[in-house]
Write a protein that binds this DNA or RNA. Sequence first.
DNA 1: ACCAGTGTAGACTCAGAGTCCAATCTTCAT
DNA 2: ATGAAGATTGGACTCTGAGTCTACACTGGT
Lengths: 192, 192
Amino acid sequence: MRTLPAPMREKVLAAADLIAEHGLDATKMEDIAASTGVPKATLYYYFEGKEEILTFLFTEILDEVRQAVAGALQSGGTAAQRLEATIVAHLRVFERFPMASRALQFDLGRAARIPLIAERTDAAFVNPVRDLLVEGVLDGSLREMDHPTLVATAILGAVTTTGINALTIQPRRQLRRVATELVRFVLAGVTA
Amino acid sequence: MRTLPAPMREKVLAAADLIAEHGLDATKMEDIAASTGVPKATLYYYFEGKEEILTFLFTEILDEVRQAVAGALQSGGTAAQRLEATIVAHLRVFERFPMASRALQFDLGRAARIPLIAERTDAAFVNPVRDLLVEGVLDGSLREMDHPTLVATAILGAVTTTGINALTIQPRRQLRRVATELVRFVLAGVTA
DNA sequence: ACCAGTGTAGACTCAGAGTCCAATCTTCAT
DNA sequence: ATGAAGATTGGACTCTGAGTCTACACTGGT
C-alpha cells in the first residue's frame, strides 16, 4: 500500500459507509470508485486489492481506539477508575465513527485473520486493559484474576458487541446510558 | 431451502470445516461439492445459493445453543446459579462444534444481517438470559439493572468472544478454566 | 527540455457463482 | 408391472466483477 495523500485519504475513508451497508464482498470496486470519486485504476494504484482497503479502514479506526484508550489510561485515579474511562472512550469511538464501526463489525471475523489487524486490536485494547487489570490488583482497586488476558478479551467482547448494537445498529440509545450500564456490569458483574 | 434428507444433512454439515478455514466468500461452491461429496447441481437443488448454506449451518449450531441453554435454565437453583450453568452450556457448544463455531465467528457480522439468524440468536441466548436476569432480581440472587437486554447482550459478547478465542482459535485452554474465569467475571465483575 | 512519479481511461483476462437441461435413478400408488 | 412425480447428477453455458495492462496526460524538480 502506497502512502495516501491527505485528500485521497479522506475520500477513501468515505468508503466505510458503503462497506458498512453490505460488507466488503458485496461491495464492488466500481461502487467504491463511484461513491468516493476515486477511479478504479487509481484505487489499484494505491491499494494491492479490495481487502487492503478494508485493512486501511480498520487500522484507521483501531488507531482512534488506541489513542482514545491511551488517553483514558493517563486520566489518573485508581485502575478501576481508569478502566471505566477506557470503556467510555472506546464507546465514544463507535459514536464518532458509526459507519466505520459497523463495517468493522460486519467483517470482524475476516479482520481477525488479517495479522496486522489482530495485532492492532491487541495493541489498542486487549494489552492495555490486561495491564490495567494487573495494575488494579496492585493498587487494590481490582480483584485478583487467574487469566487477565482472558478477562480483557471478555471485556472487549462485551464492549464491542454492546456498543455496536446499541450505538450503530439501533442508535436511539444515549451513549451515557449505555456506558453507565456497561461499566457497572464490567466492574460489578450481575450478582446482587 | 428444501428439507434435507438425513444423510445429505450430515454431509453438508461437514462443509463447516472448509468455511471455518477461509470464510464463506473465499470458499468455492466446487470446493464444498468436492469436500462434502455432494455435487454442485445437487447443492443448488437444495439451497438457493451459497449464503443459504451458511444460514443452514448457523441455524444448526444456534439450535444446539438454544437446547443447551434451555437445559441449563431448568437446572434448578437461584437465577445466579442457572446463569452460571447457561454460560457453561454455551461454552460446551463451542467445544463440541469447534469448526462450525469458527465459521460462525468468521462470518458473524454477515450473520447478524440475516434476519433468521439474528432472530435465532435472540431466541437462543439473549432473550432467555434477559429473562433470567429479571428473574434473578426477584429471587434476590442478582442485582437490579436498568437495561437487562443490554446486559444480556454484553454477556453474549463476552462469552462468544472469549469462548471462540480460547476454545477454537487457541484450543489449548481447558474448558473448565475458561468457564470458571468467565463466570466469575460475569457474576462479580472485576472490582476488588 | 527531460525525467520521474502521479493519476486515469478503457480494454482485457479469468475465476467462480449461479442457470439450464437432458438423462438417470427412486419411490410409490394404482 | 407401469407410469407419474420427484430426486439426483453431469456438464455446458452465461454473467458479473476482481484484478491486470497499457497508453496517455499532468505535475514538479533539475
